[in-house]
Amino acid sequence: MSAVAAAASATSTGEAVQFWILGTVAVIGALATILMKKAVHSALSLAGTMIILAVFYLANGAYFLGVVQVIVYTGAIMMLFLFVVMLVGVTAADSLKETIKGQRWLAVLCGLGFGILLIAGIGNASLQHFNGLGRANSAGHVEGLAQLIFTRYVFAFEVTGALLITAAVGAMVLTHRERTERAATQRELSERRVREGVQLPPLPAPGVYARHNAVDVPGLLPDGTPSELTVSKTLRARGQVRDVSGEALADLKALERRSAERLGREEASK
């Protein structure tokens, strides 16, 4: 307990070193968040910044909050972000070219003005004197928090509970898609295929060469050209089709040559 109080009220050299190193990293992470072209890189940079913030919480004596920061933010929220990024397309890179006239200048101007004013305000405030958390944590850190949450802030606590539930329901409602028509049956699907006259039988399987999983390799038509139909639409859209037709055609030519040689030899032996 005394160690906790000491950590809360003192600013040791170790903490100073830790602040300057990790603070620099945190700022770099933040800058990377806003400057990375790909959303996934941004998310990872932000996760790093958040972990550093968790360390700072611990350094400031907010142990519970530090742990929560790691679990909730880095563990849950950032993973949610990553999940959505994956859903939207992980490889899509944003263009950082500004399209609104004057927006970037204004943003930089406002940002600089705001930051300078904020820092000037903090410097202006008389905050030199500080107390440390020794007395507040006298009954134990988590116990102290619990006492506050369940006494003075109990209504706010209950209301945030309601807020969370509402948010969960809201997310479900927003992402849920109501089916407005009956799903087509097998029979209806087959009848439609016949009516439209395209691809009556099932799609042909991809070309399978017993070397590796060849789901991205199109099957070849009798003349050796690849058939697009044999590869999944998604792979086609991503341009991830591995065309092996050239190789196959070369194999075919070699086979013909070999067979021609053999036949020629046989004719010659006759």
Binding site: G113, F114, L117
Partner: peptide, 15 residues
């Protein structure tokens, strides 16, 4: 941007 600029002006006024 307008909001942000307004906030900056508010801080300036407070200071």
């Amino acid at each position: 941007v307008s909001m942000f600029g307004g906030t900056a002006i508010l801080i300036a006024a407070t200071l």
